[in-house]
Structures are given as structure tokens and as C-alpha cells.
């Protein structure tokens, strides 16, 4: 069985950033640390779990991103992916989700797959769009926000459970090939061992240079959120802050 997993590299959640004066770009300093988008880590882990159950399963990962996104692919190889494809685009942040879906749909058309796994959204741009867009381009069935996944390779079918909210789920059966976008918390992503991390450093990553320039015409303006409240920020030492918080709660009769 062939599983394709699409992953994205994102800046660490607490990374400092700057918004350019014209508001059109978000800049992260050169020492920013990056990681695999956490939703995609769950997708990758789900592929690894399936590969443990189903013999002869081959996992390929692909990403679209700048050269430094290679570290995300190396980590995917270190935890057990077999092949890695890197669509190199230095300006990946301005490529629209639809354009990314088109690139990955072309990738899927030229590589064998029974299941495409992806995260339900990315932590940084949070569009939650790639999976269904990709399925629509490939004309394959799909389901998103999946919290439970069972694959029957003999019947070529997938049984999945989607989360509608924390106490409501729906089951769905899809024939393969299909696309599954997983919800966070479906599993516990593993960590790579040191020996596998070292091995992954030598593994081949297929690089494809993207020459296309973005056709996206939606121009965004970024800004910081506005304060909705007069927040009392405590700026003293730990002890001073504790006393100030106590005073606040005491005067409000909350403590």
C-alpha cells in the first residue's frame, strides 16, 4: 500500500515576528526555529501506525517550502517515512493554498497512492483548505477532522470517524484511493531516535524547483490584534506580580 503524506514547515508557535511597514509581509528573524506543522505530525504518525499494521506499506512525504523546509522532511524520514519530495519555493508563503493544492495534485497524479494523509489545518495560516481542495482536484472521496482511522487493505476501504464537536462524531466509509485530513489529538506523534536521525541525514530527498510565480491576486494586510480590554499588565518581579494579582482579585471580591 502507498501512503502520501503532505506536510508543511511552520515557525515555532512562540517565535517573535515583524510585520512589514506596508503590512503585506510577515517576517521572522533568521534565528527562528521551525517545526513540522503539528496537525501534519498527527497525519504522519497515522501513516506510521498504518505501516506497522499493513505489510509492504510505503510512506512518501512531500512538502512545498523554502530550502530550509528540508529539515521537516529529514525529521519525517527519521521517524519512518520512506521517500521525501521537496518542492522548493523560496516564496512559499505567498503561494496560495489553491496553488499548493494544484502542485500537490500533480505530484499525486505522477506517484502511486492509496491514501493521502494531511493535517486538517496549518498552525500559521490556518486556512483548513488544502485537503478538500486536493480531493476536488483529484476527484477522489475525502473526509476531514478525522479522529479514528481503520484501513482494510483487502477490501480497499477506509473506515473513519470525524469529530463534529467534542461529544459528536460521525463515521464514514470511503473506498481507496481517498484523502484523509486528521484532527489534532488522533494519536501521540513519536520522536525520532538519534540513530534514525543520523541515518535520515544521508537519505535522498528528491528536490523539484518550482519556477511558477504566484497567480494569487488576493492581497492581505497584516496587523496586530487590537486590545478589546484595558489589560492591567503586571511588570514587576514574580513576588510583586503575585501581590498585585492578589490585590486585584481581593478588591474585585474574587478572592
Amino acid at each position: 500500500m502507498h501512503i502520501l503524506v503532505f506536510i508543511k514547515q511552520v515557525p515555532h508557535g512562540e517565535s517573535p515576528f515583524e510585520i512589514s511597514k506596508d503590512g503585506h509581509t510577515i517576517q521572522f528573524p533568521s534565528n527562528t526555529s521551525y517545526a513540522i506543522n503539528s496537525y501534519d505530525e498527527y497525519a504522519l504518525e497515522e501513516a506510521l501506525i498504518l505501516a506497522e499494521i499493513i505489510p509492504d506499506t510505503v510512506i512518501s512525504v512531500a512538502t512545498i517550502g523554502p530550502k530550509k523546509a528540508e529539515t521537516a522532511l529529514r525529521r519525517a524520514l527519521a521517524i519512518g517515512a520512506h521517500h521525501a519530495y521537496h518542492y522548493i519555493a523560496e516564496n512559499a508563503s505567498v503561494v496560495s493554498t489553491f496553488e499548493k493544492a494544484e502542485i500537490l495534485a500533480e505530484h499525486a497524479k505522477s506517484h502511486p497512492f492509496d491514501i493521502i494523509l494531511a493535517g486538517s489545518m496549518s498552525e500559521d495560516s490556518a486556512h483548513a483548505a488544502l485537503g478538500p481542495m486536493l480531493a476536488a482536484l483529484l476527484d477522489i472521496p475525502w473526509a476531514t477532522h478525522i479522529m479514528k482511522l481503520e484501513v482494510n487493505p483487502a477490501e480497499k476501504s477506509i473506515r473513519a470517524q470525524r469529530e463534529i464537536d467534542v461529544s459528536t462524531r460521525q463515521s464514514i466509509t470511503l473506498p481507496m484511493p481517498a484523502l484523509i485530513a486528521v484532527q489534532s489529538g488522533i494519536n501521540r506523534p513519536r520522536y525520532p531516535s538519534l540513530s534514525n536521525t543520523l541515518r535520515a541525514k544521508k537519505q535522498e530527498i528528491v528536490e523539484i524547483l518550482l519556477h511558477r510565480t504566484s497567480q494569487s491576486n488576493a492581497k492581505s494586510r497584516f496587523h496586530l490584534p487590537h486590545r478589546t480590554k484595558e489589560t492591567h499588565m503586571l511588570t514587576g518581579s514574580c513576588e510583586e506580580n503575585a501581590r498585585a494579582l492578589y490585590e486585584y482579585l481581593h478588591t474585585k471580591s474574587l478572592l
Binding site: F17, D124, A126, A218, K219, S220, F222, H223, L224, P225
Partner: peptide, 16 residues
């Protein structure tokens, strides 16, 4: 207006 990066950044878009 939508948000990115867990609410740290707001994004204004003129709807195409």
C-alpha cells in the same frame, strides 16, 4: 478579517 498564527496576527483581505 481573519487570524493567523493562533490569533497573534490579524489579516485583512478584500474579498475577491
Amino acid at each position: 478579517t481573519r487570524e493567523r498564527c493562533n490569533g497573534k496576527i490579524r489579516e485583512d483581505i478584500v474579498l475577491p
